[in-house]
Amino acid sequence: MSNPSNFKFAKTDEWVSLEGNVATIGVSDYAQSQLSDIVYLEFLVEPGDEFTTGDSLVTLESVKAAADVSSPVSGKVLEINEALTDDFEAVNADPFGRAWMVKVELSDPSELDSLMTADAYTTYCEERDH
């Protein structure tokens, strides 16, 4: 699965897509493949919560691993994708679409500048595989 060219990526494998001042956050295809089959997903934030870079938004569990989705940006939670709690398989099946996790209002849009482009992230993933 190729990384969408209009998304930005964090070193910790989260993606961000921007519409106006609203950012949507999820995890990358590389992240889901490393975790293997997701068996549980739990939101650690709810709409209205404010958070800063690095705060944990979501917990993911597979059979052999657990990972926290940490926020690559700062802001306020507008919406969470509650359907994912039951449809956690979407994280494996459609990480860039159906498995969006949190929509946030950015408090500092300049934080996006420090994230990677899709191309840079693709290279970054390839390096880690070797």
């Binding site: 068996v39 549980y40 569990e61 597979s62 059979v63 052999k64 691993a65 657990a66 926290d68």
Partner: peptide
């Protein structure tokens, strides 16, 4: 099962 909650995987979390 549900071992991903446990200390040997989550450690300080």
């Amino acid at each position: 099962t549900l071992t991903a909650r446990e200390q040997h995987i989550r450690r300080e979390k």
